[in-house]
């Protein structure tokens, strides 16, 4: 294979891996936005807490169980982290957003910023401020074809993310709760009149979104091998961008937006310049929004008359 093509494929793999993580976080932004029109700034921090929970689970496993096959410990990490983050998500919703359901929308935005400050600093104080190293749970195995390499952990990231996206799509399309979520997004008042328990649906949305973000956190921690209490900020900002890019409120849009943003960043850093790549990503975003103001897959909702 020729070297330029190899390089391109490698860059594509690099970008896709990152894009999967963005997509998982972006789903939480988009779902919450769909039901209560809130840009949940604290979502990035939930992702970061998910990563720290994974680290905690690894410590607990190492202390209690000794060596296990990697998929067993991986599953244990996922369960532990998802449970913890889902609880956190539900608590945040109850404490910080629920009392403000009928207040101006920006009010909840400000509490979400407050929650974000709080979580970041709480994690900093609990886990100390230094970068923490995450032990390698998934063995470092990689397939190489020429100069293209693809590692086992990348495989795990691809499978887990795609699996979860398929599950989520099914959940929203076919389950009662999923339908309720869509109904609420479409028209909250009508949904309420149809006997949908708004509080319950919102709570479930937060739980689902937080669990997905925590999966992203687990994958992130394992892939990069280190976690920092500041990780939620940048990843959250990028994922939020991805959600808007794909069309906020749209679930397939968040997936597409996340993956595209990752690929675009990868190719931008590889071929143009790593210090300008974020500028290109944001320029692309602005260009997309101006030509198609509702994002790639967003529905063009006619303005209320």
């Amino acid at each position: 294979m020729n070297a330029a093509l190899e390089l391109f494929i490698q860059q594509l793999i690099n970008g896709l891996t990152l894009g999967m993580v963005y997509a998982l976080i972006a789903l939480g932004y988009t779902m919450v936005y769909g039901v209560i029109q809130l840009i949940n700034f604290a979502h990035g921090e939930v992702f970061m807490v998910g990563a720290y929970l994974a680290l905690t689970a690894i410590w607990i496993l190492a202390a209690l169980a000794g060596p296990l096959p990697f998929w067993v410990s991986f599953a244990a990490l996922l369960v532990f982290s998802m449970a913890g983050s889902a609880l956190l998500g539900a608590t945040i919703e109850k404490v910080a957003y629920k009392p403000l359901r009928n207040s101006p929308r920006l009010t909840a935005l400000i509490t979400s910023i407050g929650v974000s400050f709080f979580l970041q600093n709480a994690v900093m104080l609990i886990y100390r401020s230094k970068e923490q190293s995450v032990p390698e749970i998934i063995p470092h195995v990689q397939v190489s074809l020429g100069r293209i390499s693809f590692s086992l952990i990348q495989g795990v990231i691809f499978l887990t993310s795609i699996g979860l996206m398929i599950f989520l799509t099914w959940f929203v399309k076919n389950t009662k709760l999923g339908k309720a979520m869509r109904a609420l997004a479409e028209d909250p008042e009508a949904a309420c009149l149809m006997g949908i328990s708004v509080d319950r649906v919102i709570r479930v949305t937060f739980i689902l979104g937080s669990a997905l973000a925590s999966v992203a956190g687990v994958l992130f921690a394992l892939y990069y091998g280190s976690v920092n209490f500041h990780d939620g900020y940048l990843a959250g900002l990028k994922a939020f961008t991805a959600a808007v890019f794909g069309g906020i409120g749209s679930i397939p849009g968040a997936m597409l937006g996340g993956v595209l943003l990752g690929v675009f960043e990868g190719l931008g850093a590889g071929y143009i310049s790593s210090q300008w790549k974020d500028v290109f990503a944001f320029l692309l975003l602005v260009a997309v929004l101006i030509s198609k103001p509702s994002g790639l897959l967003g529905e063009n909702i006619p303005e209320k008359v």
Partner: peptide, 20 residues
């Protein structure tokens, strides 16, 4: 001579370029 952003985690694209 490239610049990266502090706090960023993924440098694979840049390193792939430098590798060549």
């Amino acid at each position: 001579h490239d610049g990266i952003t502090q706090g960023e985690k993924d440098f694979a694209p840049l390193l792939t370029k430098i590798r060549s």
